[in-house]
Amino acid sequence: MKKLLTLICCLLWLEAFAQPGIEEMNKARNDLAADYFSASDLSLVLATLLGLNGAVKIYHNWQMGKHHIDADIAAWFFAALFMVLAGAFLKALFGI
């Protein structure tokens, strides 16, 4: 009885190493790697659009006589910076 129990435990231990889904996980990683470059480009395009939009609004406010625009400059700058860093963060997070 002890030998049978030992044999069953050894077989269960070997079964634990045979993880199903490794191939699917590799496929998902490859799909994510392919889609990441599109997301990275999208974050750069959004950062560009945010920066241009902010520059136009700040220039318009300056020309209309509002000279206390320091908070506006910081807000638009950090919004664009966040979008640029989002791509690097995603790359580090997913290990791509």
Rank of each mutant, 00 (worst) to 15 (best):
I8M: 11
I73C: 05
V56I: 07
M83Q: 11
A55H: 10
D31K: 04
N61R: 10
A79I: 06
R29S: 04
M1L: 02
G54N: 12
A79Y: 08
I69W: 00
A74G: 12
L7A: 05
G21P: 01
I73E: 04
G21T: 01
M1Q: 04
S38P: 10
G95L: 03
G51H: 11
Q19C: 05
A88Y: 11
M64K: 10
E15H: 04
A16E: 06
G65H: 00
L81C: 04
L44P: 01
M64P: 02
G65K: 00
L81G: 03
Q63G: 05
L93G: 04
T6E: 11
N53Q: 13
V56H: 03
H68D: 15
P20R: 11
V56N: 01
A75Q: 09
L14E: 06
A74W: 09
L14I: 05
W13Q: 02
S40I: 07
A28F: 07
L14F: 07
F94T: 12
K3V: 07
L11H: 01
E24I: 06
H68S: 15
G95I: 01
I96Y: 15
F78N: 00
I22W: 04
D72W: 02
K91H: 15
Y36Q: 08
F37V: 13
A79D: 15
D31Y: 04
L46A: 08
D35C: 05
D70T: 15
I73W: 02
A47F: 05
S43Y: 10
M83C: 13
K91S: 13
L12G: 14
K27Y: 06
R29N: 04
L42C: 02
I96H: 15
A92W: 06
G51K: 06
G51A: 10
L42Q: 10
A33V: 09
L93P: 03
A88L: 10
W76G: 02
A34C: 11
A71N: 14
D70Y: 14
W76N: 03
D72P: 01
S43G: 13
A79R: 11
C9Q: 09
P20K: 09
N30W: 13
G65A: 01
S38Q: 14
A74C: 10
I69C: 01
